[in-house]
Simulated scan of single mutants.
Amino acid sequence: MDNESELHAFCQELTGASWIALDTEFIREKTYYPQLCLIQLATDSALACIDPLALGDLGPLEPLLLDASVTKVVHAAHQDLEILYLKTGAVPAPVFDTQVAAGLLGYGDQIGYARLVETVLGRSLEKGHARTDWSLRPLEAEQLAYAADDVRYLAEAYPIIVRELERLGRLDWLEEDFRALSDPARYEPDPEGAWQRVKGTQHLKGRQLAVLKHLAAWRERQAMRSDRPRRWILSDDVLLELARRQPTDLRGLGKVRGLEERTFKRLGEELLSLIREGTALPKEQWPVLPERRALAPEQEALVDVAMGILRHRARENEISPAAIASRRDVEAVVCGDRDSDLVHGWRARLAGDAIRGWLAGSLQIRVRDGEMELEK
């Protein structure tokens, strides 16, 4: 679908729909921002592949994406929502993420779309176009069929997943998780926080982290301004080496491993200036790495038992333990952290409350016929 009149007619056809299945195809290997190349939409009676490259703006589609009465059904929603937010300035809402929902049905943690379709519908998907360049035109019939399948089967699976969640009394458990997916703050670029995504940051400390934060924020803004991948500006390894060595002149800068000669010639003085600015920051402005919680031996023992409770509750409810919480989440509960996801919402009802009850002494663990039991 590559003209506005067709798109308008399709959106009119969807009037009154309570939900739509949504997927996107994009590329970002050579850019900072993802380039939206295709939008696929489907209900139980309609399907379309929409070409945003031909349309320019999404026109009549935007109100549909933002219509609060229409649930947008997406699998592994983050990237699709991010690109639509960057394209339209708003996050589609409300959202139903079938990957998250599948975790509550015991299908596995972070299940892929092909596996979900096989599990729910018993169908095998064609994988031949997984690495295709969606920006090239015209798209072949096989590519469009592949893209259409991403919403065709999603539209078939969604009602089944909802019915199963309702049967288990778990449909409302996901409201908080899905509401968070529509928060625009999740998709805003954050230059000041870019240092936290640099691989190897844990090996730096003190003023080195201050220099890294300054350099990483500069790199992020450069990538955003030029719409190029971060690694094309400077690699993570070079950022770390600059922060570690903190060269003060071009001679020292030239000894930094991995710094390309053309980058040295073009950006040498600017990099030295950034390093000087980073080293001049007062200590109170230095970034601090998240503390790695050091548990006492008796706390480690408590965590081991609490993990057993988590696995027990997960098995009782036929859910993957990883879909409920990680060991780090359990450590936080043992240490009395009230911000852990495990003490809020459905995760608390499923396992967190039992762990906290055991820690408080209001629940005890018994073994009967080789099986764990929790009793008041």
Rank of each mutant, 00 (worst) to 15 (best):
D97W: 03
P282A: 02
E269K: 13
L350A: 12
L271N: 03
L47G: 14
A141R: 12
L212V: 11
Y146V: 00
Q364A: 12
A145L: 06
N3H: 06
A216Y: 09
Q208T: 14
G56T: 01
T248I: 09
G345L: 09
P92M: 07
L84P: 00
E241T: 11
L181M: 15
G206K: 11
E118D: 01
W19D: 07
E166F: 09
P94N: 10
L271T: 03
G357P: 07
R311F: 14
S226G: 02
G16A: 13
Q299S: 10
K376H: 14
S362N: 11
Q364T: 12
K30N: 09
C37Y: 08
P282G: 04
S226M: 13
A348P: 00
A9W: 00
G56A: 02
L22E: 10
G108I: 03
H78K: 06
L84E: 01
E62F: 00
R228A: 12
Y107M: 15
L240M: 10
S226K: 15
R137I: 00
E156Y: 12
R230S: 11
P184N: 14
Y32W: 10
P290R: 08
A194V: 05
Q143D: 00
D304N: 13
R311E: 15
T43D: 03
I355A: 09
A9R: 07
H129R: 06
V288R: 14
P290T: 08
S69H: 15
R266G: 03
E375T: 10
N317F: 07
I83A: 01
P34M: 09
E188D: 13
W218L: 06
R197V: 11
P287K: 06
Q12D: 03
G16R: 14
E166A: 08
A101K: 14
L65E: 02
K127Y: 05
M224V: 09
K213H: 14
I83T: 00
K283D: 04
L212I: 12
Q79M: 05
P52R: 05
G128P: 04
A301Q: 15
G59P: 00
A325T: 02
L259D: 04
A325V: 01
D329M: 02
L55S: 01
P94Q: 09
Q40H: 13
A102N: 13
G128W: 07
Q110T: 04
H312Q: 15
T248K: 14
R356A: 09
C11L: 10
G278H: 09
D329Q: 03
P52K: 04
R28H: 05
R244I: 06
Y158E: 06
R366C: 09
H129K: 05
W195T: 06
F26E: 01
V120E: 01
F96L: 06
G16S: 13
L104Q: 08
G206M: 08
